[in-house]
Amino acid sequence: MTALRRLFFFVVGLFLALPLIVVAGVSINARQTLAFPPQGFSLSWYGQIFTNAEWRNALIASLTLAASSALLALLIALPLAWFLWRRIAPWANIFQLLGVAPFTLPPVITALGLLTFWATTGFYGQPWTAVISHGIFFVTLPLVTLSLGFSAIDRSLVEAAATMGADDRTVFRTVVLPLILPYLVSGYAFAFVLSLNEYIVAYMTVGFTMETLPIKIFNALRYGYTPTMAAVTVLFLVIAAVVFGLVARFGDLPKLLGAMSDER
């Protein structure tokens, strides 16, 4: 059974790793050819991301968008999650539903809705519209992690603080915030990484005025191949692995993903 299990894990792992191995391989080709196994060795394509003005601008655009839209998502999710935890107001769950909806529906729907909206209001193509669009699109992630964080708070702690005379604001600052901080950070991390990689919403809202890295790769694909795309793919994979690795290191990843905390 153990041998069978190992074999099964190996096959699935191979399936998941194979395209990435090939991409990592072609990203270190010495010349600008699509060849595997790589011919020669060169890290110049990774350098291109930072030295070539077009790729660098796309990288900066992507990082700026991801950092600011994840912050916006957090600013929307935090007061909402707090309110739902603090108050008994069943009708307010509608906003929770609205927060989860963009993520559950096929993304092209949110993208098209925002495209018609920005076109109608006349702001189509402005870089800040992408920040709002991504902020709304990814609000689900901090909302889910924060709801989990709030539900894990022992209410007797909060009651003790209130009995000692702390008001809502003090309780939030001294008791609640430290307890939900890991969930706050992981919610931001999830939204950041996904925004970095997101294509369709960014493309439909600011695709003609601003190039994020996924948009840049897609546009470059149409004109042929350059190993820089492979280098960017590897870079993004590493960023995601590092971020989620850190979340796992400092938080409880199995619990965040729905497992019970004291399992195993």
């Binding site: 090939v22 072609v26 294509y199 790769i217």
Partner: peptide, 26 residues
Amino acid sequence: VALLSILSLSEVMIGFAWSTLFSRTA
């Protein structure tokens, strides 16, 4: 961590990775 990293990978990049794996030269 591995599954989350692949899940968050841009669809553009997944498409590019598979088109490379399915290409004639590489």
